[in-house]
Each structure stands twice: as structure tokens, then as C-alpha cells.
Design a protein around this nucleic acid. Structure first.
Length: 122
DNA sequence: AGCGAGGCTGCTG
DNA sequence: CCAGCAGCCTCGC
């Protein structure tokens, strides 16, 4: 079965739902968001979904970084610096290599993903 | 309808 | 710890 928990094209909304849960001052990786959203292995889609966001959305996209703890470089120049600034404003500290401490800043959801986030009988 | 690209990841040297 | 490679899914041309 190649069926995934995702159904149809409601992947983006679920990705956004997960990202919205990331508390201020914490970060999550693309892969982490993908897994919680019920799309394991689809980290790239998370990046794509966030890229599709409009500036007026209420999704804290800046709290999603890559597995190295770095702000990923995007097609739009300058946006990566903006992301870093937003994170620093939330108390995230970057080292000389532009990396943050995932070990302590990583978001650890206590409760399991909601059904809506996993897309099961939403 | 085929193909390349995009805010990635985990594994292997 | 860093570089290279294949896998993931959707969008646009």
C-alpha cells in the first residue's frame, strides 16, 4: 500500500497546523514537522509548503530549521537573514557557525499529534 | 504526460 | 565533523 495517512491535497493545512503548535522560543526541524503531520520522510514537502505561505499568515515559519540546526538558504535572497533575526528576537542564540542548539531549543511536543494533524478522520 | 527543482534527511566513507 | 548520494512528494513548464 502506497497509501499514506495524508489524503488528497490537504497536506499543506496539516503541515501548517503542526507548525502553529511550535511555541515561541523553540524550533523544530522539517523532518520533525513532517513526521508529526503524518508525512514521515516528506521533509522536503514541509519546506515547499512553508515556501508557499503568504506573509500575512499566522504560521510561525521561522521556527522551522533544517536538521543541522541552521537556517536553510532559500531562493529569495535575504529571507534567511530575516528568519534568523526573528528567531534571535525569540531568544534563540546562534553560534559562530550560524547554528543553534537543537539539543535544548528543539520543540518536544508532550502530547501526541491530534487527529486533525494526522489527518485521520479529521 | 515527462522532467527538473525546491527553505530536507539519514546513511556511509 | 564534513562531503556525497539516493529517497521523498508536489508544483510548473
Amino acid at each position: 500500500m502506497t497509501v499514506r495517512q495524508a489524503s488528497g491535497s490537504d497536506r499543506y493545512p496539516r503541515i501548517y497546523a503542526v507548525v502553529r503548535r511550535i511555541p515561541k522560543g523553540r524550533v523544530a526541524t522539517y523532518g520533525q514537522v513532517a513526521q508529526i503531520a503524518g508525512l514521515p520522510g516528506c521533509a522536503r514537502q514541509v519546506g515547499y509548503a512553508l515556501h508557499a505561505l503568504r506573509g500575512d499568515s499566522d504560521v510561525p515559519w521561522q521556527r522551522v530549521v533544517n536538521a543541522s540546526g541552521q537556517v536553510s538558504r532559500r531562493s529569495e535572497a535575504g529571507m534567511d537573514q530575516i528568519q534568523r533575526q526573528l528567531l534571535e528576537a525569540e531568544g534563540i542564540v546562534f553560534d559562530a557557525r550560524d547554528r543553534l542548539d537543537l539539543g535544548s531549543k528543539r520543540w518536544r511536543p508532550r502530547s501526541r499529534p491530534t487527529q486533525a494533524e494526522q489527518g485521520r478522520f479529521g
